[in-house]
Each structure stands twice: as structure tokens, then as C-alpha cells.
Simulated assay, not measured.
Amino acid sequence: MPTDTYSDEQNIAQQIYQRNRELLQERRRAEDLLFNVSEGVFAVDKEFKITIFNNRLNMMLGLPEGTALGKDVDDVIILETEKGVPVDIKQYCFLPPQKMPILTDLVLKSPVNDFFVKVMFSYIKSEKDEEDSECLVTISDVTKEIMLDKTKDDFLSLASHELRTPLTIIKSYLWMLLNDQKSPLGDQQKTYAERTAASTETMIAMVNDMLNISRLEQGKLNFNLKAGKIISSIQDGLTGFDLKAKEKNIGFKIDFSTLPLETDAYYDDDKFKECIVNLVGNAIKFTKEGEVKVNVENAGNYIKISIIDTGVGISPEDVPQLFQKFGKGQRSYEKSEITGGSGLGLYIVKIYIEAMGGEVGYSSPGDFKGSVFWITVPKFTQIHV
């Protein structure tokens, strides 16, 4: 005769079996989900042997299912920068969560096709044994987005080249009209021609900005870095800005009283001047009253140049757009019909200054209380010799 004890033991065994079966089904569902997600996913153990390798990665690398398991990750996953520099993926695994990077602009090498990818890491820590911990890596295929950007950039470059010649011709004919002594224009005609000439100059500047950005992003723009007298470059670059400020009845001042005149910096003189002209031009453009001040000072191993104005300032919601490509704040946009501008100037300043080893930044004493744009340029030291 069965006893109650036997019945209880059987019930416990049945419950354990049922729970194990449910856990197994859940694990299989999770593995199926991981295996079939649209992102490439793999995991490695502490010895960097592959423990998980999903279907998307098999397809990207042209591998039969299961062949990657157990292999060293370096034998299967080959990552490079766009310039062909190998990327050691192992150094990014098993870092603390707060130091886990997101790698972008990488190329996944494959016998099928090379892919532009973004790579993210997760440390799956074992609670029982540290040696059982794994690193989960997600590889996102961003080839379509990258190729779309490249196509857009190529179009902008081509369009800019094609636009520059007719714009230069228009500028030349307008100059001839405005300076024709034999058949001078009437007052109204002259006004129209001057406005057209100003708009043409704006268009030419915009085209040149787009060409420079295209060259920068394709790595075709060279920098002539060498020692130079930074104060002389600032004075030369800003020649005539005092007159522009005077036309608007605002003050203009360059203060380098705390920096020795002979201080050497390490920079590209022409591109540095372009940055200074851009920043000071913006300051004067958006300042209706008060003054624009250029402050030059020591900042450790750098020289810091701050452009301080009493203009409209930048609204807090627009600050994240500063120094971004085509980044134009609402206030600057409202004035675009009068002042012009492509939204490329600050982006070019950032790219140029960072290529010279410096930094860019912005601060404001408050809403509608002016702006402070600053850049730094490294001093010339024995390191550069």
C-alpha cells in the first residue's frame, strides 16, 4: 500500500522536474531569441574562447552554424579602423561596467563583404565563480548609414565644386557693375547690386565651408603645424574688425596684457586665423550694443583665446548643437535672413582647433547676457622639436 510519505516525495520530485523543464524551455527561448536577433552577438569566456555566436554573425562572416564555438576570438572576429589599423577586441572585454566603451567607425573584415560596425560590450559576471564570467559583445551593422553619409558628402563636395565657378563669375560681373565709371549705376540700382554682391559673398563662403568639411572628413586637408607668434597671428587675422565694430557702434578690444609678445604656439597659422575670424565675426554679428573683447592668456601648456560679447547669447536648449555640423540655434536662425550663415562655421572651428591639439568651448553668464567662446592652442615646447 502507498504511504503518504511516498506521495509527498513523488510530488516534490514532480515539482522539481516540472520546474527544471520550465527553466530549460526558458533558456531555449532565450537562446533562440539571442540566436535570431538582427544584431551580431557573441560571448567569450575568460580565456577569450567563443561560447555564444549567433546567426546574424554567421551570416555576416559566411560561417556554418556552430563552427565559431570554442575558437579564439581573434581567429574569428577581425576588426580594423577605416585606415586599416587592427583593433584588439580583447582589451575591451572584462572592464568594469563604467569603463565599457562603445566603439564606432570600425570595419568588420569578412570573406563575404566588409561591414562598417558599432561594437558594444557587457560584462556578464558569475556570482558563483569569477572564472565563469563572460563578456557579451554586440556588433551592429551600420554600413547603410555610413554609405548614405558618404554619398551625401560626395554630393555636397561635387555640388560645391560646381557652384564655385558660376558664383565667382557672378561676383566678378557685380564688381564690374559697381565700379563702372563710364556708366555708373543709379542709387537704387547700386543698392540692389551691393545686396546681391553681399549675398554672393555669403554663398561663396558657404561653398568653401562645405568643400573644407568634405576634405576634412575624407582626410584630404593638410595642416601646416609649426611654431609661430600667436599674438601677431591674432593681430593680423583681426585687422579691420575694429572698423566693423565701429560701424555697429559697439566697442572692440584685444587684450593680451598678461601674455608675453614673443610667446610661441604650435599651430597652422592660416587655419588658426580662419577660426579667430569666424568667432569674432559671429560675436560682432550678433551684438547690437556693448562690446566684443578678445582675451588672450596663459592656460598651462596652452594659450587660451576667449571671445567675449554682450550679444543675444545662446539659449540653454541650443547649447548642445554648438560645434555640430549645420548646428544653428533658434536665435541665430531668426537672424539668418540678415546675417547669413550656414551653420558650418563653429563645426569647422572645432575640427581645425582639435586637429592642432587644442580644445573649444562655450560659456555664458546667463540667458540674453552675452556669450564667451574660447579656444586653446598648444604652446611650442621642446616636445615639438
Rank of each mutant, 00 (worst) to 15 (best):
S306E: 03
L221E: 14
G290H: 04
L259P: 04
D236E: 15
I250F: 07
E247Q: 11
V319W: 02
D268I: 03
K246I: 05
P260Y: 07
F223G: 03
M203W: 14
N278W: 01
I230F: 02
I213R: 03
S214E: 06
D309L: 08
D269S: 10
D255I: 09
N222L: 05
S183M: 14
V277W: 00
P184I: 12
V207C: 11
I308L: 15
G311Y: 01
E201P: 02
K229M: 06
E317N: 11
M210T: 07
I250E: 00
K285Y: 01
E262Q: 11
E297I: 02
T239S: 14
R215G: 01
N301P: 08
K293Q: 08
G228A: 15
V292L: 07
G228F: 06
E297V: 13
N249W: 02
E297K: 15
I204F: 12
L211D: 07
L216Q: 01
K248W: 00
T191M: 14
A198F: 14
Q235L: 15
Q324H: 09
A205C: 09
T202F: 14
E274P: 00
N249G: 09
P320F: 04
K226M: 06
N282L: 07
E291H: 09
K288C: 06
D187G: 15
L221C: 02
E291W: 08
A198N: 02
Q188M: 15
K285V: 04
F252D: 00
G281K: 01
M210S: 05
F241G: 02
I254G: 05
K285M: 12
V319N: 02
L221T: 03
N282G: 02
L322Q: 04
S306P: 05
N222E: 15
V207D: 01
P260L: 09
G327H: 06
V312F: 07
L322M: 08
N249R: 08
P316A: 08
S183N: 15
V277E: 05
M210F: 07
G228W: 00
I204S: 10
T202G: 14
L211Y: 05
G281L: 04
T200M: 09
A227K: 11
E297L: 10
S199P: 03
Q235A: 08
L211E: 08
F252N: 01
F241S: 08
T310K: 09
P260H: 12
S199I: 11
E201C: 04
Q330A: 13
S315C: 06
I213A: 05
E201R: 09
L243M: 11
V280K: 01
S306T: 04
N222W: 01
I284T: 05
E217Y: 11
N249Y: 12
F252V: 01
Q324N: 08
P320M: 10
S232P: 01
K288G: 10
E297C: 12
N222A: 15
V207Q: 08
L243Q: 12
N224S: 13
L216A: 02
V294C: 10
I231L: 14
K244N: 06
D309F: 06
Q324M: 14
S232T: 07
A245Q: 03
